[in-house]
Amino acid sequence: MTTPRDLLTVAMDMESSRPLERGDLSLALAGAELIDLLSAQAIRMDGDHIVPAHRPTVADRLLDQAASSLAREAPYESVGDWLWRRGHGLATAYLAALEAEGQLTRQHRRWMPFRTGRTVLADSPARRRAADRWTSHEPILTALAAAAGINDTQPGDPPSVADDAVATVLAAVNDAVRELEAVRQRRAIEKAAFDNIWRGDGD
């Protein structure tokens, strides 16, 4: 399993009192990919820019796709730009991958045999490994989960990590999630103002 898959597994397993925003999760997944590529020494950081190193052989299809999509010539891509570009629709892509691999099942109710039911994770060693990583409060997974709003956590200052490159990625994920929330709030205000105009015209 990769960090993005562990993050998605945790997101699906955790109960939350508020809906999980798929855009926030997608940004966190893109950050998780970068952290795994750092761990594989496939990239290094030059400030907040991503510099590709060797092209690794990656067993995971989506992580390999991430590695192949890196900008390999200067000026290199910033972490923030990567998160917005790579993160677009990424949660959906990872869900589709889990489903294609048979790691998702449909939870049916006996009295509703013709309903598709709710999609849940199948019991698997990968799911248990992700749960172990979560319950051990592994700092990177905890920080990414907080950025995505999993388990009622809130984005905040990333936890202290020894690796400066990882800290840079975590900080960028938090910044991107805050920016996305600001966009949502602005659109909600604009929509409310537009609705008020229409209601006013109808009076």
Rank of each mutant, 00 (worst) to 15 (best):
E21G: 09
R22D: 11
R22A: 12
G23K: 03
G23P: 01
D24N: 13
D24V: 00
S26V: 06
L27D: 00
L29G: 04
L29S: 05
A30D: 09
G31N: 05
A32K: 00
E33Q: 14
E33K: 04
L37V: 01
L38Q: 08
A42R: 01
R44M: 09
M45D: 02
M45A: 13
G47Y: 06
D48A: 07
D48F: 04
D48P: 02
H49E: 11
H49I: 00
P52G: 02
P52A: 01
A53K: 11
A53Y: 04
H54A: 12
H54I: 08
H54G: 06
T57N: 12
A59C: 03
A59I: 07
R61P: 12
R61A: 15
L63P: 03
L63A: 10
D64H: 14
A66Q: 02
A66Y: 00
A66E: 02
A66M: 07
A66L: 05
A67H: 00
A67M: 03
S69M: 05
S69Q: 10
L70Y: 01
R72C: 03
A74Q: 12
A74M: 06
Y76E: 00
S78A: 14
D81M: 12
W84C: 03
W84L: 13
W84S: 06
R85T: 08
R86E: 02
R86H: 12
H88I: 00
G89R: 09
L90C: 02
T92F: 14
A93N: 06
L95Y: 11
L95M: 15
A100M: 06
A100R: 14
E101V: 02
E101H: 09
G102M: 05
G102W: 09
G102S: 08
G102N: 10
Q103N: 07
L104Y: 02
T105M: 07
Q107H: 12
Q107T: 05
H108C: 06
H108M: 14
R109L: 14
W111H: 12
W111D: 13
M112Y: 05
R115C: 03
R115F: 11
T116S: 14
T116E: 15
T116L: 12
R118K: 11
R118W: 08
T119F: 06
T119S: 14
L121N: 03
A122K: 15
A126L: 10
